[in-house]
Simulated scan of single mutants.
Amino acid sequence: MPTVLRIQGYRFFFFSNEGNEPVHIHIESGDGYCKFWIESITLAYSSGYHSAELNKIRKLVEEHKDELETAWHEFFSNT
Score class of each variant (00 low, 15 high):
1 M>K: 09
1 M>D: 13
2 P>F: 00
3 T>H: 09
3 T>V: 15
3 T>L: 07
3 T>W: 06
3 T>I: 14
4 V>W: 03
5 L>I: 11
6 R>L: 05
6 R>N: 08
7 I>Y: 02
7 I>T: 08
7 I>N: 03
8 Q>T: 00
9 G>A: 06
10 Y>A: 03
10 Y>G: 02
11 R>L: 12
12 F>A: 00
12 F>Q: 03
13 F>G: 05
14 F>K: 07
15 F>N: 01
15 F>A: 02
15 F>L: 05
15 F>Q: 01
17 N>C: 01
17 N>A: 00
17 N>S: 04
17 N>G: 00
17 N>M: 00
18 E>K: 02
18 E>R: 02
19 G>H: 00
19 G>N: 01
20 N>V: 03
20 N>I: 08
20 N>Q: 01
21 E>T: 00
22 P>T: 07
23 V>L: 15
23 V>S: 14
24 H>K: 08
24 H>D: 03
25 I>H: 04
25 I>M: 05
26 H>V: 02
27 I>L: 15
27 I>Y: 06
27 I>A: 05
28 E>M: 06
29 S>H: 02
29 S>T: 10
30 G>W: 07
30 G>D: 09
30 G>Y: 07
30 G>I: 05
31 D>E: 08
31 D>Q: 06
31 D>R: 13
32 G>Q: 04
32 G>W: 02
32 G>M: 01
32 G>V: 03
33 Y>F: 15
33 Y>D: 04
33 Y>T: 02
34 C>V: 06
35 K>Y: 04
36 F>Q: 04
36 F>G: 05
38 I>F: 06
39 E>F: 13
39 E>H: 15
40 S>K: 15
40 S>Y: 08
41 I>M: 10
42 T>N: 08
42 T>C: 07
42 T>K: 14
43 L>Q: 03
44 A>I: 12
45 Y>G: 07
45 Y>L: 11
45 Y>M: 11
46 S>V: 06
47 S>E: 13
48 G>S: 02
48 G>I: 05
48 G>L: 05
49 Y>W: 07
50 H>V: 15
51 S>F: 13
52 A>M: 14
52 A>F: 12
52 A>E: 15
53 E>Y: 04
53 E>R: 12
53 E>T: 13
53 E>M: 11
53 E>D: 10
54 L>Q: 08
55 N>K: 08
55 N>A: 15
57 I>P: 06
58 R>N: 09
60 L>W: 08
60 L>K: 10
60 L>Y: 11
60 L>S: 01
61 V>W: 08
61 V>T: 09
61 V>G: 04
62 E>C: 14
62 E>F: 14
63 E>Q: 12
63 E>G: 09
64 H>Y: 13
65 K>P: 10
65 K>I: 15
65 K>F: 11
65 K>C: 13
66 D>E: 12
66 D>I: 14
68 L>F: 12
69 E>W: 09
70 T>Q: 14
70 T>H: 10
70 T>N: 10
71 A>P: 08
72 W>V: 06
72 W>E: 03
72 W>F: 11
74 E>A: 02
76 F>Y: 09
76 F>I: 02
76 F>R: 03
77 S>E: 08
77 S>I: 09
78 N>E: 10
78 N>I: 01
78 N>H: 09
78 N>R: 11
79 T>V: 05
